[in-house]
Design a protein around this nucleic acid. Structure first.
Lengths: 128, 128
DNA sequence: ACAATAGGGGAAAAATTTATCCCTATATGA
DNA sequence: TCATATAGGGATAAATTTTTCCCCTATTGT
């Protein structure tokens, strides 16, 4: 595990929520768990752009922050299911609001994001 | 500038909003600009935990994503003011929802976050 | 002459996060 | 017997972000 050298700011609500949601796949994990995809292999299939290893790490952090629980069934082959805690469930409307804004502004967002990426590569060509 | 080697996912609304909000100080910058702190030096005073350099970089990204505009006054000493674009303003209710959830759950969040940090350092002691 | 204030940025280091690689174990089906 | 599916983790590399350090312009006030 990696021990932080710079302690996070925990001054206001924005700091606090940032601390538990900051992580490339965390919001998606919460979203899919809420949709009923509970098992690690299911979640991996829903999020194929990263590996199980990475998902495990982020799931563990979500668990330590008490947003999800992990239930282990003593069967073979092993079976594990994640669920949202009551606390985690209260986050769903917030995530929903994020996704809604993104969906409503999808076209514009895609444009400005891609435009910025193009600027990056252009600068790279110039500097070489 | 840094050119990405891994292209971002832009599949759904959550990916898109993540792309423009992901950045340690961006949400706070948007928030304070919305509150009327427009000049770089004012923003720096509101966010003393990082340097002007870093704020400049993140402000520039926000500008490239068309969430803020930068207005330069041709005076000496120089004067610059940031404002939210109409597009940026539509994000304020979403940020507000994030902050609200964080505030409402402040106590619990602080507990679980600090607990997790303590676990990190404990493991470090053991492994040494 | 010098410091302070206003604005900015390049280069490189440090911190942090994410990805990759390779390993454990058991049962089932081909 | 071998591949697949289930779940997990250590070690290390790579990517990315954030920070630090030092530099620049010009004016005003001491």
């Amino acid at each position: 595990m990696y021990e932080r050298k710079i302690l996070p700011n925990l001054n206001c609500g924005l700091d606090l929520i940032g601390e538990v949601l900051y992580g490339k796949w965390k919001i998606r994990l919460l979203w899919f768990i809420n949709e009923g995809y509970k098992r690690p292999s299911e979640l991996q299939r829903k999020i194929p752009d990263t590996t199980r290893r990475v998902l495990n790490i982020q799931l563990k952090e979500l668990e330590e922050h008490e947003l999800v629980t992990r239930k282990i069934y003593p069967v073979v082959p092993p079976k594990v299911e994640y669920s949202l805690t009551e606390f985690g469930k209260t986050l769903i409307p917030v995530i929903s609001a994020l996704g809604k804004w993104g969906d409503e502004n999808e076209e514009h967002l895609r444009t400005v994001i891609l435009e910025r990426l193009r600027q990056e590569s252009r600068q790279d060509i110039v500097s070489v």
